[in-house]
C-alpha cells in the first residue's frame, strides 16, 4: 500500500530524514518509535503533504506517486493524519467540517452526498463508541477542547472518513489510560485487511492496545532497527540508548 524509498528531507542545513525505507502492506500496523527530534513528525508531514522539500526519494501509495498529489488529493485517495497538535478553527462548526470532508471524499469516489439525517445517524454511532457528548459537534473545531477531546475528535474524523492509511502522530501523548483505551478502540473499529495504520509514538503503551505487526526505531533520521512487536517491549525495558549503543551507525 505505502512504499517509501530512500527518503531524504533537509530543512535548511539540517538533514531531518536520511534515507528512510519503509513498506506498509494492506492490513498491516506499523509502529515508528523514536526519541524527540528523531524525525518522526517530519515523516508524517511528508506522507500527508505538509512538507514537500524532499532532497531525494520516492513515496508511492497504491501505485501512485504520492509526491505528485496535493494534500487534499492524498486525503481523497484515503490517507488520513491524526495530528499531534490538532488545529483550533474558531467559527467553523465541528459538524460542518466533518460533513464537508465526508462529502468531499464521497464525491471523489463518485458517490452521492450523505443527507443530513443519515449523516447524523452515522456520526452519533461513532461518537457513542468514543464516548463523546453531542454538544461536541456544534462547537468550533477544537476550539477550547481539552487535549484529550482534541485527540478524540481526530479519531472521530478518522472513523467518519474511513481512510485506507491512517497515520497517528503521537495520538497517545497527553492521554490518560482510559482515554487511550477509548481512542484505541476507535482506531481498531476500522481495522480490516484492506486498511493500514502507521503509529508514530515515543511510548510503547499505545501498542498494547493497537498491536503492531512491525516496529521501527527511528533515530537521527534513520530507521536503525526494525522488528516485530517484541521490539517495543525491549525498548520499554532498555530505552532508546540501548538501540543507539547497539547500532553505531545511528550516532553518525
Amino acid at each position: 500500500m505505502l512504499s517509501i524509498n530512500d527518503l531524504c528531507v533537509q530543512i535548511e542545513d539540517k538533514k531531518i530524514l536520511d534515507g528512510i525505507n519503509l513498506d506498509v502492506a494492506a492490513g498491516e500496523v506499523h509502529a515508528v518509535m523514536g526519541p524527540n527530534g528523531s524525525g518522526k513528525s517530519t515523516l508524517a508531514n511528508v506522507i500527508t503533504g505538509k512538507l514537500d522539500n524532499l532532497t531525494q526519494g520516492r513515496i508511492t501509495f497504491n501505485g501512485m506517486d504520492l509526491l505528485d498529489l496535493d494534500p487534499e488529493e492524498r486525503a481523497r485517495e484515503g490517507i488520513f493524519l491524526a495530528f499531534q497538535h490538532p488545529i483550533e478553527i474558531p467559527g467553523v462548526n465541528n459538524i460542518y467540517l466533518i460533513k464537508a470532508a465526508v462529502n468531499a471524499l464521497r464525491r471523489h469516489r463518485g458517490e452521492s452526498e450523505l443527507d443530513a439525517i443519515d449523516f447524523l445517524a452515522i456520526v452519533r454511532e461513532k461518537m457513542k463508541l468514543l464516548q463523546i457528548n453531542e454538544s461536541f459537534l456544534y462547537r468550533s473545531v477544537n476550539e477550547g477542547f481539552s487535549g484529550g477531546e482534541k485527540k478524540r475528535n481526530e479519531i472521530l474524523q478518522m472513523m467518519m472518513l474511513e481512510p485506507k492509511l491512517t497515520v497517528l502522530d503521537e495520538t497517545d501523548s497527553g492521554l490518560d489510560i482510559d482515554a487511550l483505551k477509548i481512542v484505541s478502540r476507535g482506531v481498531n473499529s476500522l481495522a480490516d485487511a484492506g486498511r493500514s495504520t502507521v503509529i508514530i509514538t515515543h511510548f510503547p503503551r499505545i501498542l498494547e492496545y493497537i498491536v503492531p505487526d512491525h516496529v521501527h526505531v527511528l533515530i537521527g533520521g534513520r530507521i536503525v532497527r526494525s522488528g516485530g512487536k517484541d521490539l517495543a517491549h525491549e525498548l520499554e525495558k532498555y530505552g532508546y540508548t540501548w538501540v543507539i549503543e547497539d547500532t553505531p551507525a545511528a550516532v553518525a
Binding site: 500527508t48 503533504g49 505538509k50 496535493d70 494534500p71 487534499e72 492524498r74 486525503a75 481523497r76 488520513f80 493524519l81 495530528f83 490538532p86 488545529i87 478553527i89 474558531p90 467559527g91 467553523v92 467540517l97 464537508a100 470532508a101 468531499a104 471524499l105 471523489h108 468550533s140 474524523q157 472518513l161
Partner: peptide, 19 residues
C-alpha cells in the same frame, strides 16, 4: 488541516474567511 481532510485549498480558504 482542512486540506488534509479532503477540502480543496479554495474551499479551505473560503471556509476560514466565512468563519
Amino acid at each position: 488541516y482542512l486540506r488534509s481532510r479532503g477540502l480543496t485549498e479554495e474551499q479551505a480558504r473560503t471556509m476560514l474567511t466565512d468563519a
